[in-house]
Write a protein that binds this DNA or RNA. Structure first.
Lengths: 131, 131, 131, 131
DNA sequence: GTGGTCTAGACCACA
DNA sequence: GTGGTCTAGACCACA
């Protein structure tokens, strides 16, 4: 379920946290599902338990999981959090796309990307899609 | 021309290099323009010359500048590099946008971003977008 | 394993990097083998850790090693790199040999060099050359 | 006649000296031909005269040219020198080819290079060429 | 312990 | 003056 890329420049604990974030956001790990214990995951990944602990603290701090003393860590209900995440992505996208525009990327090049993602049916005017 | 953010978690040398990348990619610093000397920039920014040197080495390694011993550092001709960079941005955009789609971002939300960047009048042809 | 030539005009960090390149390309240091730590090697060679760090950064930039923060530096899988290196050598050889031809070096003089390297018995097929 | 590559990592004076070496070794500049004056060449290349002077001293030290006080610099008779250069190239070739062998370059790959340089008529046995 | 960054300061080759 | 290398020494994040 969790894979580590030792060549990545991201610290291990962030990689682990990020992976869990995705799993939680996608609903693979539903609310109140128990997280694997720090120790078992440490053994499974052959990683120092401190690192797992750090990843879990990180996730808890961000609201993805909550910890119950003596029992373990559990997945939070993240409906609100997901909305937040969506906004972050839109903001990040704006920054990236703007950066590309500066480099000479045309609107149609971006539209082509959207076409690939969402299908092509309605690409000449998408204003009718807006609520 | 160069500003330092001491709050940023990015190392100084990367901040400096990144800033110059932008200036070079935007054409503010044209090919063969001499870069500020290591020492003068170090004084101007109140930063150790070694750190500037590191930033310049970094830029050289990436092909943004070239160095002539005893003379100084000069901006490279980065037309090929810029093309490459554009492709990278498109690829990165695809990844990010796809990630957003997974989170429930609709095409129209992305289109709204594009509208904001390129103007709204005409989204099938982008040559007339700039006011 | 690593020797320094203080007479050489090559910078220390390049000497060190080059030495490791050879060891890695020859397979003496196999993929994922941990490199000596920056500090331990610095002590062993009586060289400043910064210089070792620079050598390692150099190797990383060239793809010979990868670094895991807090853990150490490790040898990369360089099969692709080795192929590339082989091509570079052939290209360089062509340039050098051509330069020699211009100076009057005959084909037989070059063949003699090859004979010395690969053995003399059979120069149309080299699969049986090694004793 | 002389071209400068400011992107090269070789110092200017070496680039200039090397270029003259080639011209002299190839006989383009025959023995006793007068070299361009330091000043005129400096102007022509838009380079500091000191640098030209350094290149000429370098050439003189290696025996490629000789200087006559108050008159200028002249090309030496370099027949002996050419022989020396040839030997150097053969030695360098041996080192490079050996390095390639270590990387897995086969004799036939090298033979192919020789074929390209000298033509293919006699590549199965070149021992009859030897004096 | 491990790598990464940064400063202060020195020395060198080159132009 | 210009870049490049190196040492000594400090501090930080990460494992």
């Amino acid at each position: 379920m969790i894979t580590i890329d030792y060549q990545s420049k991201l610290p291990l604990y962030e990689q682990i946290a990020e992976r869990f974030q995705t799993l939680i956001l996608r609903g693979v790990l539903p609310p109140d599902r128990q997280m694997p214990s720090v120790r078992s995951l440490a053994v499974e990944l052959s990683i120092n338990p401190n690192t797992i602990q750090k990843a879990y603290s990180f996730l808890e701090q961000q609201g993805y999981i909550y910890s119950v003393k003596g029992r373990g860590n559990y997945v939070s209900d993240i409906t609100a959090l997901a909305e937040q995440k969506k906004k972050n992505i839109l903001k990040e996208a704006e920054r990236l796309l703007s950066c590309g525009k500066e480099m000479g990327v045309s609107r149609s090049e971006y539209s082509a990307v959207l076409d690939r993602l969402y299908g092509k049916e309605d690409n000449s005017d998408d204003r009718t899609e807006k609520p």
